[in-house]
Simulated scan of single mutants.
Amino acid sequence: MASVSVLVVDDAPFIRDLIKKALRSHFPGLQIEEAVNGSKARQLLARTSFDLILCDWEMPELSGLELLQWFRTQSGQEKTPFIMVTSRGDRDNVVEAIKAGVSDYVGKPFSNEQLISKVRKALQRAGKLQQLRARPVATGGHAQETITSLLGSRPAPVPPTTPKPAVPVDNRTAARSTARAQLRVAGQQFACVIRSLSLRDARLVVRRGEQLPAVFDSAVLDLEQEGEQGVARINGYVHTLAALEDRMDCEWVLVTLKFVDQDPAKLEWLSMLIAEGGH
């Protein structure tokens, strides 16, 4: 192993690739290993030491929280930086992770600046940053997010109503009007209307604002079904953007979000939502 090593744990290959690309571009010489879920990561951690762990929360077989709880019981691993990378930003979840010994928290969707800022801080605290030729990176306000700030605020709630664009909704729209949706991309939140939904992707209508998502941005689609408690957070990335009218001042934009989640529970929830929409 190299002098500084990191383990990336996520069941979504796209997210793992996104993290690895960001780390390699800012930290030359960093040794990166990956695991496809918490169970595989535990096997790897049982025989190999790492200087930093970046781990998703929601994974099949063994969740990120369960991996963290096990990891902190291992000899000599009480202070190894363990950063949770997840769409779970609720206060109760953050408190639970803190009690289990999490070092820091990166909320999905994240920008490269947010991720690198947290990694740099963790390596510096562990005394490992000086061993790398870390490149400077501009950080914005979102990159300064800390556990304290997460505890002091909650994600903006899903709006009680979503805007109704003056465009026809196609015949394969899932969930009809029974699901509320919000798209989150790198610190931005967009109320949206579901135009179509499948197990692979979602086509969403969002109102054009000062900023728009960019192709290949990591994203999270929050889905809240009427009459049920809780929100399903589906991880993905922006695949395409298209104006809904043939004019430059078009107010509505069609965003295609490709899902990267492989969590069986989320796929089952999506299947039920699609079935209720008549598909």
Rank of each mutant, 00 (worst) to 15 (best):
Q144I: 01
N37V: 06
G230Q: 07
S117E: 02
N37F: 12
L54Q: 03
G227Y: 12
P136C: 08
G101C: 06
L54N: 06
L123H: 05
V220L: 00
T73N: 10
L257T: 15
F110H: 03
A97M: 11
L151E: 03
S3H: 12
V36G: 05
E61V: 00
A179M: 14
A214T: 11
Q69Y: 13
V205M: 13
Q43V: 00
A35N: 02
A243Q: 11
L199N: 07
G127V: 07
L129R: 08
A100W: 12
V8I: 15
I53M: 08
A265Q: 14
Q182N: 02
A265T: 15
H279A: 10
R154M: 08
A46V: 00
A175T: 06
P155G: 01
E268W: 11
G38E: 07
T48P: 00
V85S: 04
Q225D: 10
D170N: 06
L273W: 04
A143Y: 02
E276G: 15
R16T: 11
S87V: 15
A275F: 10
L23T: 05
K40G: 06
Q144Y: 03
P155I: 07
Q225V: 04
L123A: 07
L23H: 09
R180W: 06
G64Y: 14
K258P: 01
G152S: 12
A242Y: 06
P165T: 08
L199F: 08
L115Q: 02
G107N: 06
I15H: 08
V255M: 04
L54P: 04
L257R: 06
G209P: 01
P28Y: 13
V215R: 04
S75D: 10
L241A: 07
L18Q: 05
D10W: 09
M1T: 10
S117K: 02
L183V: 05
A166R: 14
G127S: 03
Y105V: 09
G278H: 04
K164L: 14
D90G: 07
M272C: 10
L254M: 10
G101H: 08
K118R: 11
D11T: 05
A126T: 05
Q69R: 07
A12N: 14
E78S: 06
A138F: 03
V9H: 09
N171C: 05
E34H: 04
L23W: 05
G187S: 03
T48I: 09
F71Y: 14
P163M: 03
V6A: 10
L267R: 13
E34S: 11
V260K: 15
L7N: 12
L132E: 11
G209L: 01
L132F: 11
K118P: 04
Q131S: 14
A12C: 14
A41P: 05
A265D: 15
G76Q: 12
Q31V: 03
W57R: 00
K128C: 10
L30W: 06
A2W: 00
L44K: 09
A100H: 09
D90R: 04
V36E: 12
R72G: 00
T146M: 01
I194N: 13
D249S: 04
V137P: 01
L257P: 11
A202V: 13
Y237K: 02
G29E: 12
L212D: 08
A181F: 00
E251S: 03
S198Y: 11
R133G: 13
R247L: 11
R125K: 09
T173G: 00
L270N: 11
R247T: 00
V158W: 04
E58R: 01
S271H: 09
R42V: 00
I32R: 03
T178W: 05
I194M: 12
E113G: 05
A275S: 11
K266M: 10
